[in-house]
């Protein structure tokens, strides 16, 4: 079990995020300046969503040592499920019911993604390394193609008119919960198994650890949080289109995990923040922006291959 200290930090983080939200929104709307406005607030939410994605993928890729390239697919499942639910059930009269509905649809989106994660994980986790990577990439793409051709989900046009319910508080509370849950899993007695599977699968199974069970658990948990992130994304951008979830999105998340240092949660969080803010800062450079971005990725991998922030206790063997 976790120390009560960690639980306390979680509660403080959630309360702080929820209490800060009205204040930040009030400032952004009434005292909008060059230095603080809804654009920056929006980026703050983008960061929270990316933190959830990166930390959950880190459970699969970092802690358990699998290589998934299909995270965007799970995000899509969660996003479309949650968006469809709120679009069908949102109430314009009983406004107090909407936050409950939002929480419920996020949860259901997460569960849907976990279910798909299970369906994808069980057959494909027999594969190793690059084969697993390509199969998860394949599943991610297939999920995207299905959304792209299904009229019910808006097909190529996308799904407009999703209510604007994701705010700073929701985003960061859920990010805090994700970090907490992943930390709890990894640091528990049970969770040592993930690291054992990562370090040496054969030795782990000799010690009575069932690698497949651990891999599937990591995969399903990771998919669940990716689904939550998808739900937040849907209600933040207020619009869903299959092109948001192509394999480049998965690769973006993988880059965050690797840049942060596989298996090191603080590093991965920092990388998620940096990789979300960097393209925004580079906006002023217009057409040079993505060139600089790619050069920075190459440069960082050369200079800090162990991840940007070699903090946290895990040393990674590959």
């Amino acid at each position: 079990m976790m120390h009560s200290g960690a639980k306390r930090s979680l509660i403080i983080a959630i309360v702080a995020a929820v209490l800060l939200t009205p204040l930040l929104e009030w400032i952004a709307h009434t005292h909008s300046t060059k230095y603080f406005n809804t654009y920056y607030l929006g980026i703050g939410i983008d960061i929270a969503i990316n933190v959830i994605l990166a930390v959950s993928l880190n459970l699969i890729n970092g802690h358990t040592g699998q290589f998934s390239l299909g995270h965007a697919g799970f995000m899509a499942v969660g996003g479309y499920t949650a968006a469809k639910l709120t679009l069908a059930l949102q109430s314009h009269t009983l406004l107090w019911i909407n936050p409950i509905l939002f929480g419920g649809s996020l949860l259901l989106g997460g569960l849907m993604a976990a279910l798909v994660g299970f369906a994808v994980g069980v057959p494909s986790l027999r594969l190793r390394g690059d084969y697993l990577a390509i199969v998860t990439l394949g599943f991610g793409e297939i999920i995207r193609v299905v959304f792209q051709t299904t009229e019910f989900f808006g097909a190529a046009t996308g799904l407009p008119g999703i209510p604007n319910w994701t705010n700073f508080g929701w985003g960061w509370s859920l990010a805090a919960i994700t970090v907490f849950v992943v930390a709890c899993i990894v640091n528990s007695t049970y969770g040592r198994g993930f690291i054992a599977v990562h370090d040496d699968e054969v030795a782990a199974s000799a010690m009575g650890i069932n690698p497949v069970r651990y891999k599937v658990t990591a995969f399903v948990t990771g998919a669940f949080f990716a689904g939550i992130a998808g739900g937040l994304f849907a209600h933040h951008k207020r619009f869903l289109s299959p092109t948001s979830f192509d394999f480049m999105k998965s690769i973006d998340i993988v880059v965050m995990v690797i840049l942060g240092g596989m298996g090191r949660t603080p590093g991965v969080i920092a990388a998620a923040v940096i990789l979300t803010v960097m393209p925004e800062v580079l906006r002023g450079f217009a057409e040079y922006r993505m060139i600089i971005y790619s050069l920075l990725i190459i440069g960082l991998m050369m200079l800090r291959p162990q991840g940007l922030f070699a903090i946290g206790k895990r040393t990674v063997k590959t």
């Binding site: 880059v255 060139i291 790619s294 590959t318």
Partner: peptide
């Protein structure tokens, strides 16, 4: 001599670099 994943990410970086550079007018 680095982990393969490092090289993989570098390869992604190189690919993006070539694509975006060539897209530049």
């Amino acid at each position: 001599k680095r982990p393969k994943l490092t090289v993989l990410i570098t390869a992604i970086g190189v690919s993006l670099f070539i694509e975006f550079t060539c897209q530049h007018k």
